[in-house]
Design a protein around this nucleic acid. Sequence first.
DNA 1: ATTAGCACTCAAACAAATCGAGTGCTAACA
DNA 2: TGTTAGCACTCGATTTGTTTGAGTGCTAAT
Lengths: 342, 342
Amino acid sequence: MELPERKMKILQAIVRTYLATGEPVGSRTISKATDLKLSSATIRNEMADLEELGLIVQPHTSAGRIPSDAGYRLYVDEMLKNKQKEVDDEKQVLLEREDRLENLLKQVARLLAANTQYASMISSPVIIKNKIKFIQLTQVDPQHVLAVIVIEGNLIRNTMIDVEGELGSEQLLKLNMLLNSSLDGVSVDQINLGLVAAIKQQAGESSGIAAKVIDSAAEVIRADEHPEIYTSGTDNIFRYPELSDQQKASRLIGDFEEQETLRSIVKESLEDGTDTGIQVYIGNEVPSSGAMEDCSVVTATYELGEDMKGTIGIIGPKRMDYDKVVDVMKNIMAQLDDYYKK
Amino acid sequence: MELPERKMKILQAIVRTYLATGEPVGSRTISKATDLKLSSATIRNEMADLEELGLIVQPHTSAGRIPSDAGYRLYVDEMLKNKQKEVDDEKQVLLEREDRLENLLKQVARLLAANTQYASMISSPVIIKNKIKFIQLTQVDPQHVLAVIVIEGNLIRNTMIDVEGELGSEQLLKLNMLLNSSLDGVSVDQINLGLVAAIKQQAGESSGIAAKVIDSAAEVIRADEHPEIYTSGTDNIFRYPELSDQQKASRLIGDFEEQETLRSIVKESLEDGTDTGIQVYIGNEVPSSGAMEDCSVVTATYELGEDMKGTIGIIGPKRMDYDKVVDVMKNIMAQLDDYYKK
DNA sequence: ATTAGCACTCAAACAAATCGAGTGCTAACA
DNA sequence: TGTTAGCACTCGATTTGTTTGAGTGCTAAT
């Protein structure tokens, strides 16, 4: 949608003052806020046009205007277009080193929420192309075999496997070697039923137990397809009246706890991937919105090291300080990028 | 506090109808609700006495009465006293088997919330007396050693350790044996600085690396001192007007997400342990209340298998259906008890 | 000791009055 | 032809006043 420059300027002024105040903005306010030197009457005419274009709406007659979803959309697109030129200024956000990935993620979520005053989320990274480094089976006691799987990037997964019949130590050794030779260097997304069947066959005599071992192992590796999601600052939604009436707040909190909606946002966000890595969903654009129909969500895909990808997100009211949020996100992403390089 | 039977009956009637309706209850209502055949005027006199005793309060002149914290306390104590006699009726709550502990805990939280319509929490079990079954160190690549620790009950902990200088395979074997012989059968709570120092000394030549290994291992084991807490149904607080105004809801949600307060409740609950295993905290009795000053919390200590203890809790308004909550809790606890026996 | 009766209190619910920000439209103007 | 001043009008928000009724405390009678 192409818009004459003057109309665009007025739209931007409307959006900006609405973001700041949260109240419908009138023609007089805009007349003063812009450098166009136009009277309120002229602005009124332009506003009538903008309303006809569906970019702004009146909550009721005799009230000012507020941006419609389409209005926000246009504003955000324009903003992102200009953002690309800008350079990062110095980094205010400080990311401390953490020994455990989980704590790092929690810290990021907290930082995002603290710096924006909106709710934030972060998904644990999904390992897509990483390869299996090695697998080790150990007999823990007569009934149990412990399987430890190490993936490139030194991620560890383990599982305890029930074995009914006792498993001889040579048999275990054989299985160990078989699994290592069959799976070494195989990337996680290459593990499928065919491969599993092939290995089972090769296992031969101890096939029964081998099957169990492989199944369990395969499942453990695939567990990453349900990434963990950490949230922070959900109570920030109460800062924004448009989200904090009983009903809406309740549904939002429910969605945050349930994580179902958050998962679909993460999924969609990974699929949509833009060049800047940043996505903005407004109102009903939010994947499987519902409770989120009054929200905007800004997401970005972060990368940790080589092939670990995850999503960070900010959830707030549609009248969100998009500028600032995008800045904070870029900032955090740059730091996550650095994180594994040091 | 001993109370004449009639006053007790009236107090109980007040509490019960208040729990049901949520509105201050008047003398007329009580006069009809009890089997005492007393006129409203008499009830009024008795109510004046109860108020003087600090068991009920008037929100304002010309309103009915509502129970004070002390009133609730008395009511709950009396209720628990009688509960002990009762027998469980059939179990309605169904606990499905789960492969991963984490999912089991989440399920329990969901069940608690769904069956009570309050918010629920469950802490992951803390391993107190369980013993170390074995430790295994493996060289993953030149820079990293993987340590896997198996604890009785087949809980697995692992950590990746950076080693600067290369570690010979014989050295690794030695360390493996040393750790196993020194720590085998040692219960988790016996690991302290003294023991660690002793082992370091024995490690002798490879002491530098050994130290790192042991420190990391010890830390990983102790990680259980910060149990994970899962919550469910936090949005249920919006069912109760007394908790769902902006401010209170916001602070509650914040506390739920932050988990700091929940941790102190879990801690206190484990310390207070009663014979029935069930504790009730009302209003300011809630450990480090604050946001929870308008809530009641019912907790119970569950046991999974031998020595894994954790806490489940229900958080709701002070006007909570204590009877039902206690029933549901007992029910769930019985099932958790069974869970590991099958 | 219990109860009927009565004056009194006070939040909640409702209605009416007022206010004011902001609009659309018309007519004048550059 | 685009801009602006002026004005009547709209409508939510706020304020103020009124009514209602549940519930109390007290007193006097049973």
